[in-house]
Design a protein around this nucleic acid. Structure first.
Lengths: 203, 203
DNA sequence: TTACAAACCAAGCGCTTGCTTGGTATTGTC
DNA sequence: GACAATACCAAGCAAGCGCTTGGTTTGTAA
């Protein structure tokens, strides 16, 4: 399944919003603005202006500003979980599975969904405690995909360090690429970057 | 030189504020609050209350709220540069030097200066463009310490990946530990964590 | 055409924000 | 003990914030 096919099936199941619809367009713009200026510095007037409506009209679609942030995060995790599962299915060996996950996560972080992914990392604290719990449950499913592969690699002897620690390190390292990786300059492609990550781990 | 001796000499040179003085106490509390609630959610009234003065009185010490954020960041980088230099001097081989840097940065991130380090990572966007330029200059000095060691390791053949990319990955991985590493539970010490990082890189 | 809900606008309320102001203690210096 | 300089307080201003309100337009289906 291609990336686009996965997105389409999630839209069909009503798990993520269609980016061409009103709600989806707002969420896309919200992710862009939250990423660019941060959640707190982005006003409901900014959000409304970005989609061409009045600020008050936002509250017809979402009850609060925070609900918008939560929706961005929830839909992002749902999409990414599906993308990672597809990456796993396309690989045979555990080493290839890890490479697939790394490559897919790098693509999520630095591709079209990059803004939403950055929001997930950097605006976490702006979520209310209640919403954090909800989003954490989704994230656990996502993390399990990684841990299973890393644990298999450890059992094979290909990995020396603790799988749990390695996943945490990879989370940080891969997320951080959003602050410096620019494909257009430097000539480093996403595949090249993936190679570097694997080389760094001597895998 | 011990950590404390380094701090003392920086205070003597007026490069960082004495934590027991009025200014230093404010910066410590500011780092704590910025880390806990984020820069935007922290009000000048919060900051003032934390050191037991009126909100207006803050502006006797700092011209703007942002100047407080900048001061936290500048002093943190100055201290850390000194700490890294000390770590390098204490090591002989390049492998040991890298281990020293990793260990020192983990200590900065997860020790007493951890709050300020987290602010440096997560509140970057709240700095005005002008202040960002100033802080970036200091950071370049700091980053050069790392790159020199990584480049030597590459020349030795101990490292396969690109030094520049590896440093960026390490920045992300080590910074991220602040979100999950809790020395009290899990039984993983800072030295143990350092070992894990080195093991992950097969070094 | 009618009926009705969903989508939106124009206006603004109540509150919080960073910062200013004018004045009063406190401290250090000769 | 005189005199600044420094550190602080009490009060509040102007602007911006999230969100509400009452009413109008648009889309849909019988």
């Amino acid at each position: 399944m291609s990336q686009n096919q996965i997105l389409q099936s999630l839209i069909a199941e009503n798990l993520v919003s269609d980016p061409s619809g009103a709600r989806g367009r707002l969420l896309t713009e919200a992710a862009r603005l939250f990423r660019e200026k941060g959640y707190e510095r982005t006003t409901v007037r900014d959000l409304a202006a970005a989609v061409g409506i009045q600020s008050g009209s936002l509250f017809h679609h979402f009850r609060t500003k925070e609900e918008i942030l939560k929706a961005v995060m929830v839909e992002t995790i749902r999409l990414n979980t599906a993308l990672m599962q597809a990456a796993l299915e396309a690989a045979d060996t555990n080493r290839e599975k890890l490479r697939g996950l790394v490559r897919a996560e790098l693509e999520s972080i630095n591709g079209q969904t990059g803004e939403a992914m950055a929001v997930l990392v950097f605006e976490w604290r702006s979520l209310s405690a209640a919403s954090q719990v909800e989003v954490l449950e989704l994230r656990d499913i996502y993390e399990k995909l990684w841990l299973d592969v890393l644990e298999s690699l450890k059992r094979e002897g290909a990995l020396e360090a603790d799988p749990f620690v390695v996943r945490r390190m990879l989370t940080g390292a891969l997320s951080w690429t959003v602050t410096w990786y620019k494909p257009e300059r430097g000539g480093l492609t996403l595949d090249g970057l993936t190679d570097q990550v694997m080389a760094m781990m001597a895998l």
